[in-house]
Amino acid sequence: MLQITNLVKRYGSDEPVLKNLSLTVPERNVVSVIGASGAGKSTLLRCINRLVEPTSGDIELNGVNLTKLRGGQLRHARQRIGMIFQGFNLVERLTVMENVLSGRLGYVSFLRAAFRRFPQADIDRAFHFMERVGIAHYANKRADELSGGERQRVGVVRALMQEPEILLADEPTASLDPKTSEQIMALLRSLSEELSLPVLINIHNVTEAKAYTDRIVGMRYGRIIFDGAPTSLDEAAMDEIYAGTPVDDRAADQAAGRPLETVPS
């Protein structure tokens, strides 16, 4: 279970990107986060595995508070959080298998990593998942020889190799054509069920969000303004999520007397 409480992220002295945000994702739940560009979706995801350092607040994954971890402890926690990226973020010049096995880097010794001698269990696991998503025959191809959909499958398998307790997906389908992106969404959904994994997906495509996820979280300018089942996301809620400007929000906040919006020096 992922539990985020009062999360704030501020770059320098600018207005916070995330404003006192709280969110709970129970086990085996596919949650999509929607919202306009700049709403803070990507920052939220990156705060969870600390690719972005949160300013304040707590993030707990299965009882471990992630915000306080440092060095080796942080790396250990990251092993249990799989991440899937919009641009796939594969190492293009390595083979598909090396990219997949890089998901095990947190577990194996430096020498094993250097000489590509991974334990047989890791190799079995890699082939299993690669077969599951249909890329096993590409094992020794270089990642840059693959199509977009295939690359994202490599990205998914890399994340699964980590034996994650949660999957974070940052716009996993934004660089893909509509058909492929539906396949990837379906894949994430069924993997969540098979492996009883909670999955948190940032997504632009609301139709896909409605079709493939259990729950939709709507963000606007750093805070959650909608949280409910896909069926309850109606026209009015959509308008609220995608309308407005930061200035409007700030004015409304000031009128309501909410503290975080007045930017301290």
Binding site: L51, R78, I81, F85, L90, L105, R158, Q162
Partner: peptide, 11 residues
């Protein structure tokens, strides 16, 4: 890719 590998918990 650096970000992605860091996210796997690699040293």
């Amino acid at each position: 890719p650096v970000e992605a590998i860091e996210a796997t918990g690699a040293s």
